[in-house]
Nucleic acid binder design. Structure first.
Length: 808
RNA sequence: GCCGGUGUGGUGGAAUGGUAGACACAGGAGACUUAAAAUCUCCCGGUAGCAAUACUGUACCGGUUCGAGUCCGGUCACCGGCACCA
């Protein structure tokens, strides 16, 4: 019989869907649970991509193996279906986004099932489903009630031609992604979430989770905690100007100060600034520039001195000039900095350009050439009054103490992390469940009125003023205040795509609960997620946002763990042929459906795992897929030629046990490529030795997570299904016997003075003397040792012996 | 610029400090076949040699070690992220 993968895969996929062997049971507390999670996809019109198949297949393998090891496994799937592409498609084709989403989801589900993933389909979720987004809205209301959601005026990206607000992703090289026109900054009132209040916990709790290191590092850098000092400088106006610095030790070296163009002090001090026209012109120029331009043109420092005002250095009591310059950001620290040109490169450039004095206060560099920025022990303070002679490390606390004592400021921790802009002027998102009442202000919708459904609209286009399409629905917008009953207007902004994905892993635990987001019982059983795999591109947004929401839910008693994910791993990208990124425009996108049609899902699964180190980028090669197909052909042929005996054969014992050991540990370590390589070696060796059905049983058990369809078929063919039931229901993952993993003899390397001279065959665990004696018999060794004195031998059991010799 | 990662055959990639190149792809030779495909067997880093073999080889320079692709110091290249964060 031939290996007919199409028929086999269809047969078993249908049986799995019908018999549901992968359904997770929440109330089975007798078994240890394992919750494996992969990032749910955005159901795009293009359908599944081979890039999805990599992480999905890996987690499917892990979960299938865990099930076989007796765990109660939760491995769910869903769709993150709100978002722009669907909305844009709806606008263009005048189809309701819900319909587009429904069709795309159906396509995704079909493709996922065609790959044989062992998802628990009974728990499927969809963020656009009202029974789901009810709870997204509910979480938002809790955040609002705890004061963590607030309205603020924020600069947004505004396309001057399309007249719409763009997400950062839609701004390409400073222009609009769609029309290429100029994108400028425009102030708009937006809902914000106070993620910065959780900044410390988001950093500190990384200690307690098992994330790959680069994810932890990237999150720490993104949050960007820095410990510094807020310092008040006096001015000739008698008013104070507060700066933030991490280098208060350099206070004696401050020769000027700079405020950002948006700093409120400028307008406040307008009347005292004698060159207001020049200052005002600079302000306007800065406001016109987009963020992109401001950072692009950062090579050359610009600025204007504020004439008529001077600041006073509190340490030296000297008057120093005050500038406005766009190298200072309003969004970080206080929007004002003290200029220390001797020890900050940006300040050095600015001072050099404007001819300001540069004072050395830390000895060690050459400040005529560049700023000396070292912060460690090597620098010694000079020209700094009471700090002279101290190291920088000593000077920082000494200065802090002095500043505090003099009432000039205090210690302050700052973060690069900004609060989360939570409003979108879009249709296809969760409506924000708040109403604005003239009398009562913002009023949350009572929880029993959730979900607040997205109304039907005539057009999904944003308005000319950049308001959400919902704002045109006056019937919907005009409502009554839940508080006073008076006239009120609904919020017309919707939530960003990140909202629904910030808590979906909780919903899987209890997907059909209409009373609660998740029941206590289900949450306490399944939480936290044991293993979450996802893309590096989600490290600083999705992963951080969902950790934030989870911590908030912990604080209000909805969940019982501080962290949502115990372990996080990340996969590398799949590149197109030739190592270039796959993209629609290059036309090099590989569709898994095509590969399945030609080679089968099992081959697809094997190849995408065999292609290389899971964490690194890998290049797709349609040629190389054949290798995985040939392997499955060999497995099929081996099964057909297997002898009738249900005993394991003596000859195959070492390879069986070696492979059990290797595959078991490799799957746990996410080294799926070498796990497959060892299975290939096993099949090659079994083919050479001849295999019994007993040998095949072990092979099939080990192979089943990787290539479940062919294994299920062979399992049945060789009579195991009749005796033990389906492979999908097996709970006896093979266990190895260490003593059987090694053959009775081993090949050992022989070196003389570290140089390889040959190899010898020795019984396992031979003693050093025997090994040395045998090694001496090797011709090349004998030649190399001749006339020399043996001074030392290094014996590594079962591996090598190294003879160290010297001339006599 | 800063932070992280990676450099190994023609290619994808293996190697707890212990025989570099497992396992595959491509290529070559052969078997089977009328022929092709499929399958099976063998070869496959470089240089020299008919061969046995010798030398050499993991981006580059240096160090530690009996022994380094692996550890340490420095250099270069590429990839990803951040980017005037005071």
């Amino acid at each position: 019989m031939k290996y007919d993968f199409t028929a086999i895969e269809k047969k078993w996929q249908a049986k799995w869907l019908e018999e549901k062997p992968f359904t997770a049971v929440t109330d089975d507390k007798t078994r240890e649970k394992f919750y494996g999670l992969i990032e749910f996809p955005y159901p795009s019109a293009q359908g599944l991509h081979v890039g999805h198949a990599r992480p999905f297949t890996a987690m499917d393998i892990i979960c299938r193996k865990k099930r076989m090891q007796g765990y109660n496994v939760l491995f769910p799937m869903g769709y993150d279906a709100f978002g722009l592409p669907t909305e844009n498609f709806a606008i263009k084709n005048k189809i309701h986004p819900a319909k587009v989403t429904h069709d795309n989801v159906a396509n995704f589900r079909r493709q996922l099932q065609a790959l044989g993933y062992s998802f628990d389909w009974d728990r499927e979720v969809n963020t656009t489903d009202p029974s789901y987004y009810k709870w997204t809205q509910w979480i938002f209301l809790q955040l609002y009630k705890k004061g963590l959601a607030y309205k603020a005026s924020m600069p947004v990206n505004w396309c001057t031609s399309c007249k719409i607000v763009l997400a950062n992703e839609e701004v390409v090289d400073g222009g609009c992604e769609r029309c290429g026109s100029e994108v400028i900054r425009k102030e708009k009132s937006q809902w914000m979430l106070a993620i910065t209040k959780y900044a410390d916990r988001l950093i500190d709790d990384l200690e307690d989770v098992d994330y790959i290191n680069r994810v932890k590092i990237q999150q720490r850098n993104w949050i960007g905690r820095s410990e510094g000092t807020e310092l008040n400088f006096g001015t000739t106006l008698g008013e104070t100007l507060t700066v933030y610095t991490t280098r208060c030790d350099t206070l004696f070296g401050v020769t000027y100060m700079v405020v950002s163009p948006e700093h409120p002090c400028l307008d406040k001090w307008k009347d005292s600034i004698t060159n207001w026209e020049a200052v005002s012109a600079y302000k306007d120029e800065a406001a016109r520039k987009s963020d992109f331009e401001r950072s692009e043109l950062n090579k050359d420092k610009t600025g204007v001195r504020l004439e008529g005002i001077a600041a006073i250095n509190p340490a030296t009591k000297e008057q120093i000039p005050l500038f406005v310059s766009d190298y200072v950001l309003m969004s970080y620290g206080t929007g004002a900095v003290m200029g220390v040109p001797g020890h900050d490169q940006r300040d050095w450039e600015f001072a050099t350009k404007f001819g300001l004095p540069i004072i050395e206060v830390v000895k060690g560099g050459d400040i005529t050439k560049e700023a000396f920025t070292l912060k460690d022990d090597t620098g010694i303070m000079v020209n700094s009054g009471f700090l002279d002679g101290m190291t920088v490390k000593e000077a920082i606390p000494a200065m802090k103490e002095w500043v505090t004592k003099e009432g000039l400021g205090q210690s302050k921790t700052n973060y690069k992390l900004r609060d989360w802009v939570f409003s979108r002027q879009r249709y296809w998102g969760e409506p924000i469940p708040l109403v604005n009442c003239e009398k009562c202000g913002w009023v949350p919708l009572p929880e029993d009125q959730l979900p607040l459904l997205l109304p039907e609209v005539d057009s999904y286009e944003v308005t000319d003023t950049g308001e959400s399409p919902l704002s045109k629905m006056t019937d919907w917008v005009n409502t009554t205040c839940p508080c006073c009953g008076g006239p009120a207007k609904r919020e017309t902004d919707t939530m960003p795509q990140w909202a629904g994905s910030s808590w979906y892993f909780l919903r899987y635990m209890d997907a059909h609960n209409d009373k609660e987001l998740v029941s206590k019982e289900a949450e306490q059983y399944w939480g936290p997620v044991d293993w979450y795999n996802g893309g590096m591109e989600h490290t600083t947004l999705h992963l951080l946002y969902s950790r934030f929401w989870h911590k908030f839910l912990y604080d209000i008693g909805v969940v019982s763990t501080k962290e949502p994910y115990a372990k996080r791993t990340s996969h590398g990208m799949i590149l197109g042929e030739g190592g270039i990124k796959m993209s629609k425009s290059r036309g090099n996108v590989v569709n898994p459906t095509d590969v399945i049609a030609e080679y089968g899902a099992d081959t697809m699964r094997l190849y995408i795992m065999f292609v290389g180190d899971f964490e690194k980028a890998a290049t797709w090669s349609t040629e190389a897929v054949k290798g995985s197909k040939r392997f499955l052909d060999r497995v099929w042929n081996l099964a057909e030629s297997a002898s009738e005996s249900y005993e394991e054969s003596e000859a195959n014992q070492p390879i069986l046990h070696k492979t059990i050991k290797k595959v078991t540990s490799d799957v746990d370590d996410l080294k799926l490529n070498t796990a497959i390589a060892s299975l290939m070696t096993m099949v090659n060796e079994m083919a050479a030795n001849g295999a019994t059905r007993g040998d095949m049983r072990t092979l099939l058990l080990l192979l089943s997570p990787f290539a479940p369809h062919i294994v299920e078929e062979l399992w049945e063919m060789l009579g195991f299904a009749a005796k033990e039931g389906k492979m999908a229901c097996q709970t006896d993952w093979p266990v190895y016997d260490e003593s059987k993993t090694v053959a009775s003899t081993v090949e050992m390397a022989v070196q003389v003075n570290g140089k390889l001279k040959g190899s010898i065959k020795m019984p396992v665990d031979s003693a050093e003397e025997a090994v040395v004696a045998e090694a001496m018999k090797v011709e090349k060794v004998a030649k190399a040792v001749e006339g020399m004195k043996l001074v030392k031998t290094i014996h590594v059991k079962n591996r090598l012996v190294n003879l160290i010799v010297k001339p006599q």
